[in-house]
Write a protein that binds this DNA or RNA. Sequence first.
DNA 1: TTGTAGGCGTTATCAA
DNA 2: TTGATAACGCCTACAA
Lengths: 331, 331
Amino acid sequence: VKVTIKDISREAGVSIATVSRALNNKPRTSSKTRAKILSVAERLGYQPNAAARTLSRDKTDAIGVVFHQMTSGFYASVMTGIDLEAYTQGYHVLVTISKGSDPGHDAAQALARAMRVDGLIILDATFNDSALARLKESGRPIVVIQRALKDPQVSSVAPDNIGGARAAVRHLLSLGYRDLLLIAGPPAAEDSSLRMEGCRQALGEAGIDPRRVPCILGHYSSAEALKAFRAYCASQTLPRAVFAFNDDMALAVMKELRITGVKVPQQVAVVGFDDIDAADYMGLTTVRVPMIEMGQEAVRLLAARMADPSAPAKHVLKDATLVIRESCGGE
Amino acid sequence: VKVTIKDISREAGVSIATVSRALNNKPRTSSKTRAKILSVAERLGYQPNAAARTLSRDKTDAIGVVFHQMTSGFYASVMTGIDLEAYTQGYHVLVTISKGSDPGHDAAQALARAMRVDGLIILDATFNDSALARLKESGRPIVVIQRALKDPQVSSVAPDNIGGARAAVRHLLSLGYRDLLLIAGPPAAEDSSLRMEGCRQALGEAGIDPRRVPCILGHYSSAEALKAFRAYCASQTLPRAVFAFNDDMALAVMKELRITGVKVPQQVAVVGFDDIDAADYMGLTTVRVPMIEMGQEAVRLLAARMADPSAPAKHVLKDATLVIRESCGGE
DNA sequence: TTGTAGGCGTTATCAA
DNA sequence: TTGATAACGCCTACAA
């Protein structure tokens, strides 16, 4: 069940060089022999051996994706976009989920250095600058999702974190909420800082001192957020509105409120960020990030640099728009 | 930035054959030269070229995963398990999401035939028998998730669909619900049929004629389920309890009920299947399927057959247990 | 327009 | 214990 160009050449009565040329649409081949070769290849069910091709062309036609985790809805959606676009561009997709303390960085490096992929997409907020620097040494093009880099060698695609957060807080303020609680991501995460900046801007516009608005750390994790939220509620009065910097945390809070018998939004309004599928189920007002589009865009950016490594890196910002549902301001 | 065994051989003053042997821990090598070679390799940052290795060993050290979609929480979790175990077994993971009408079958075949992967995991309920038969011709081991096959050539890992559904219906009946509505998956999907069988058993035990229990088709899709549910409600009185054959559909129904002002579970109880993350947020009583474990098991089954293709295929059934939350019977 | 031959980086089979 | 050398399947000058 394994047919090579050798088989085709024998069957068609030509040399393997001619077969290779015909199969790759190289200019110098008579259309007659080419037709014959193609038909033979078809009949034999020929499939070029990827390894052999990689070895001789120095190109894998595959891209690698490094995840932090993928159960989070957000990642799954971005991945869908990546796969969609990779397919139309003719690339295969390899995935690696970061493991434990060593956040898959070395796995990623190995992927690139071992000639398994032509380029990498990083979908991992824990990927810091030094890890990125090491990865650049592999010499392969890289695209980072979710961080708005300025790096001239690494392309990036990110949502408009500032604008999105600003819109969310403006919405809360316009509804009259003043007693807010913010739930941020990891302090080191760039997108969390930007979302915080968006909050500051909106608060500033309304003449509120941002420093007087309480903020707890949820590390983008529902479990962490829940712990922090409970601790906060134990020592403070319940806020009138909560803005969590991602949906996972917002949904965890909503669940906690429901269980403890607090009505959303009548007693506490909740707003999230991302618009994962579960947000719709829960009727969570949130900032929609175009996840699938971001995945597609990342592949396009990567493809551009793989085609021409000397091309400058691009940095794309996607709009993030407020989606109003029942948890805050909806009907 | 590209170092090969040739570079190492030159640097260490030995032949490439010796280098290869040392690097692969082959028996006949003096421990002195081996140590030297290893240190040189380390110093030079050597990384074996995967393509060359594949060509020579006829082995890719990679497995392919064929998805139907991956936004569904269920798939994302299984994928996490797959990646986890693949990593510990030393395999790389390639993914392909089925596209449109041609459900990725040919993509999968190409993957296997092009020597990109050593084996395949199918995570796609739309993968029918004929597609599977074609895929078997690639000669690579295959593991199917979510279908309890009997095929002696194809391993499978599935949840106990009958037992899970039976437990769910028994629970509903034990709470006194008699006026049930079932929301099934696609008629062609094996797991949906099995869940239906589980319902029948539980109903039969209680002396209820299963044919008198209404059942609508949701095709495992929240949108489809919603449409069917609305149509049903328009022509019938609201049921007292709904058992949807997956969480996506159950959550869609819960959302619809909330929006229309129907209290869950006071007016209508809801039970789902799978226990995706969102189920916990929504407080949905459901049948937990060990998704991560299933992914891990699939890789183990695949690895076993890749190591020894003559080994018989195994068919593993995982327990599916009821998780009681607020949507039905919880506190 | 076609064929011959060398090379891509490894592994594996022989001799030495 | 080592070192030549022939695969593996494909691509691509260079010749014919």
